[in-house]
Design a protein around this nucleic acid. Structure first.
Lengths: 202, 202, 202, 202
DNA sequence: ATATAATCGAGACGGTACGTCTGGTCTTCGC
DNA sequence: GCGAAGACCAGACGTACCGTCTCGATTATAT
């Protein structure tokens, strides 16, 4: 897990509980309002109930540590069933919504977005490993939707995708994830985007 | 502007250029990636080319200073013309998009959202003075749209509003405001939300 | 007093009490058994009741600080009256003995001798400014003694000097300065060195 | 040699080379300018090319280790021949001078004197086992000298002893043992102390 | 032969101290 | 009075080291 494992030639083993205690501490503190730059390995160690030494031994910089934290966040993404466009979109949006509802995960991601400039490597990794695959999956579903005749072929699919995920992303960014029921909200968004808000001209 | 003005009995006058230099410094540093908690009055003074003393004389805390910075951000909001729903929405969205494109303003707001927990007073003010009025205006337009028969009456208007503004808010949050043409993007969003992405059943 | 004084263009003045508090702290701690290498500016600051900052502002290294401490030790050396060899020697030895009796001074010098290798510059200064002049004075007195016919001309004067001062130096080195009466002990040493311990062959 | 040897029921034997390597390391480092408090078992282990474990297994504290080091220093003391006072004194002083010339031994003793307060037990042992017997021997010789009519009976023998040994002790304390020829210097000191530096009144 | 037992090097661990840096306050100077 | 310079205390940070504990490998004794 840690970037740089020394060659094992003997000596005491690292306590695996320390790793998770530290990562938990990071998530808790960020969820409590800390910024990524504001956090220090020292403060994290204190919160984790671990000696500074043990933290610095594992991660030289905050960057490396946050990478491992990100790894923890990156849960397996849901696979669309292929039953139908509406259902496939629901699977994807529900997956996103569930992450948004997870206070610790969404706080971490919000912080990462806000401080992307300070942690370019971290932000890049986040994009490649978390954002990109999900965006790709969404595109696949939309493409199949067009083939099936369920999605208008004359609209930029990227725009459709943006319309679908932005409400959830915006909530994550603003932290207003209180009254968010993943299942219900996903459905509502999909229905509205597919059918449109405009009144049918009689 | 400043919370506490001393009784003027003589002596040198405060240099008004100092005020704007400091506020500019804050906006520049936040746009450059600084967090609100991470900034210190000392660092700000250095960046503004002003003595620490001059900053502390004007603002006791970061909170007070940021309030004044926020004031600067809060440009007059555009008034819908009333010509038609589609046009009115375009006016509102264009106003939002223009703010999103402004690097310094959008960085400040992104930071404020990310650290809302740390600056509750500030965040409250931001909500009351910037978010609420615009949300109200949007609701007005949608209500009139329903009355005019241009907006479906069977859908929660809050959800429609959310769909309309979220793409721009999400871009602000993620900082990807590069290829954002306020006029064009606003139109695209409105069109898609009103007409829907689903193919009409033949 | 301190090596590097900044150009004064304004700003708060350094508190002179801090200087002496720190120097006192050093003397006290060394007298209490601390070694020169063992002492840290941090510990000294704590003992002096002063912030670390204030210490580091004045002295960059322990070396510089100890130089100033040494300055304090270097009290004016007594001048022989010229009345007679025995009396002149008494003046010099009494001066040395008094310094040996001073716990703080003698502890400092003992420490300095023990760690000469670690503080070569410091030890050099000590030798030049404290040891050398006194050694010179002793030589002058002995030379005059030879001229007056009060000191044997056939013995190396350096050896005589060494015999005179070593008992006091040895006591300083071993720290056994308890029962040392400067006046009485000086006399005894001089008497014995001049007259010899050997029984006159009848 | 080491305080606490485990009951032997099997297992690997301790490498005797380790003991001497460690003790050598201590003597070398002290001779190189280290203080007794400044040395740590860790640093000693590194210098000795031995694992920390092996050091701590043998000595719990620096105190215990230094005791063993002291043991090494304590070479057999020379026995006066009884041929004559002058010769007996020469034997004793030569023994002392030889120890003073030994860089490692004299550095160790100088350090021990400088830090006597920190290592009272160690210093006590040093006094009892090294200083006291030699001082006693010196007193014996002087007492016999008085009986033989070679030493003035009207002078405190302790003062005579002090005069004899102090030049060598002072050199040890100051580290100036370069140009010290044990044989020659001992003779010179004895001659001068016995015959005195004062010119015989014609 | 095969337990048993101690040594040894490597290294994790908590604790402590160090020197640096920065933040906010206070004090002095010059305009 | 204002702005600039800087002293001052408090506190955090990252590093380094110390003494202890834990582990695998090795080496010797005892069964």
């Amino acid at each position: 897990m840690n970037a740089e494992l020394p060659v094992r030639r003997g000596g005491r083993r690292r306590d695996p509980a320390t790793d998770s205690a530290v990562i938990d501490a990071v998530l808790d503190m960020v969820a409590a309002g800390a910024t990524l730059t504001g956090l220090s390995l020292v403060a994290i160690a204190k919160q984790a109930g671990v000696s500074r030494n043990s933290v610095y031994r594992r991660w030289k910089t905050k960057d490396e540590l946050y990478l491992d934290v990100l790894e923890t966040i990156n849960r397996p993404r849901p696979a669309p069933t292929g039953a139908g466009t509406r259902e496939d979109l629901a699977v994807l949006l529900r997956g996103l919504a569930e992450r948004v509802v997870d206070q610790r995960a969404s706080s971490m991601l919000r912080a990462l977005n806000a401080e992307a400039a300070t942690f370019p490597r971290l932000h890049g990794r986040y994009f490649e490993e978390i954002v990109a695959p999900r965006r790709e999956a969404m595109n696949d579903v939309l493409r199949r939707g067009v083939e099936r005749g369920e999605i208008r072929p004359d609209v930029d699919p990227d725009l459709i995708a943006e319309l679908l995920v932005s409400p959830l992303l915006a909530r994550m960014a603003s932290g207003s994830t209180d009254r968010l029921d993943p299942e219900r909200t996903s459905r509502q968004i999909i229905d509205l985007v597919l059918e449109g808000a405009g009144a049918a001209p009689a």
